[in-house]
């Protein structure tokens, strides 16, 4: 009798968990249409208040593309932001970010509070398998704490997580989605695939394709292979 009850409970919780996962993970439901919007939403930029923005500067070309994105969409991303969380893994990216913000603030008033979070690199290019696994686990634990802090400050605000690669973005997404499933705190992730990817996705891109709320590519050739992706030309 006790065993049967235990089994029933287990099956019930597994079912509930699966339903919950299906509700949260974007690949399991139909995608949002970028088409016509309601009148209210049509007025983009300036209208939205108190956005909490989280961007990750992935070093090198990834940082370059992210800085171009926030520059080109500064009205939407920076001016309406109350808090900007900046994740990074190398000091060079922070210097570049500060330069860019300085440049933008000459012509625009930015009132957002900027908070920096140092993430370890998920994996160095060319490192051994054992070395990779060790560093991935270390990164995962540290980023669990960091993403929790970031997530907590998003509560009750419009919020957006903008990612462009590389590997650390997978770990960030993993934790954000896990918090979403178990803590009922929705995260909204937009992944923009690197411009360098013309005919196939990066490994990070492939992992995040089912997980990101919106997945954007910068070359039209990728659309037939990845139908959930969206394409708006070169954005960076």
């Amino acid at each position: 009798m006790l065993l049967t009850t235990a089994w029933c409970l287990l099956i019930w919780s597994v079912t509930l968990l699966l339903v919950r996962i299906c509700l949260v993970i974007p690949i399991f439901h139909s995608s949002r249409e970028a088409g016509p919007l309601t009148k209210d939403k049509d007025n983009v930029g300036g209208r939205m208040k108190n956005l909490v923005l989280f961007i990750f500067l992935g070093s090198g070309g990834h940082t370059g593309e992210m800085l171009r994105l926030i520059e080109h969409y500064q009205g939407m991303l920076l001016e309406s932001a109350v808090t900007i969380h900046v994740g990074y893994s190398d000091d060079d990216s922070i210097i570049k970010f500060k330069n860019k913000i300085h440049q933008i603030s000459v012509s625009n008033t930015l009132r957002a509070k900027v908070i920096y979070h140092r993430f370890d690199k998920a994996r160095d290019v060319g490192s051994s398998l054992a070395g990779s696994i060790k560093s991935i686990i270390k990164t995962a634990i540290r980023s669990m704490v960091l993403t929790y802090r970031i997530k907590s400050s998003m509560r009750g605000h419009p919020n957006l997580t903008l990612l462009n690669g590389p590997g650390t973005c997978c770990i960030i997404t993993f934790w954000l989605k896990l918090y979403h499933i178990f803590l009922w705190q929705p995260s909204k992730i937009v992944y923009v695939e690197s411009l360098a990817r013309t005919n196939r996705l990066s490994l990070t891109g492939m992992i995040l394709y089912p997980l990101a709320d919106e997945f954007v590519v910068q070359w039209a050739d990728l659309l037939p292979i990845y139908p959930k992706a969206k394409y708006y030309g070169v954005l960076v």
Partner: peptide
């Protein structure tokens, strides 16, 4: 694209 960012946020 800006609308997409807005709607997601």
């Amino acid at each position: 694209f800006e609308k997409l960012l807005y709607n997601v946020a």
